[in-house]
Simulated scan of single mutants.
Amino acid sequence: MTEGNFVDYVKIHVSSGNGGKGSTHLRREKYVPKGGPDGGDGGRGGHIVIRGDKNLWTLFHFKFKKHFRAGHGEHGGSSRSTGADGTDVYMDVPLGTVVKDTETGQVLFEITGDGEEKIIARGGKGGQGNWHFRSSTNQTPRYAQPGLEGEERSITLELKVLADVGLVGFPNAGKSTLLSVITAAKPKIADYEFTTLKPNLGIVQHRDFQTFVMADIPGIIEGAAEGKGLGHYFLRHIERNSTLLFLIPADSGDIKKQYHILLDELRRYNPEMLDKDRFIVISKSDMLDEELKSEMNEELRDAFDGIPYMFISAVARQGLQELKDRLWEMLNRQEE
Rank of each mutant, 00 (worst) to 15 (best):
M1V: 13
E3W: 00
G4K: 11
G4S: 13
N5E: 14
Y9Q: 14
S16N: 10
L26R: 08
K30T: 09
G35S: 07
G36M: 07
D38I: 05
G43L: 00
G45N: 03
I48W: 06
I50D: 03
G52I: 06
W57F: 12
F60C: 09
K65M: 01
K66V: 10
E74C: 02
E74S: 09
E74D: 11
H75E: 13
G76I: 00
R80F: 02
G86R: 11
Y90D: 13
M91V: 14
V99F: 02
L108C: 07
E110S: 13
E117W: 00
Q128T: 00
N130H: 03
Q145A: 12
I155D: 12
L157Q: 12
L157R: 10
V161M: 09
G174S: 08
S180K: 09
A184E: 15
P187G: 13
K188E: 15
D191E: 14
E193C: 01
L201G: 02
V204E: 02
H206Y: 13
R207H: 11
R207E: 12
Q210D: 08
M214H: 01
I220S: 02
I221R: 02
E222F: 01
G223A: 06
G229W: 01
L230H: 14
Y233S: 14
Y233N: 13
L235R: 02
L235Y: 07
A250R: 01
D254E: 10
Q258H: 15
D264R: 15
D264S: 15
R268M: 10
Y269K: 05
L274F: 08
F279T: 04
I280L: 14
E291P: 01
L292S: 11
N297S: 06
F304W: 02
S313F: 01
R317P: 00
Q321Y: 06
E322L: 10
L323W: 05
R326K: 15
W328K: 01
E329R: 03
M330R: 11
L331Q: 03
N332G: 00
N332Y: 03
N332T: 09
Q334L: 10
E335T: 11
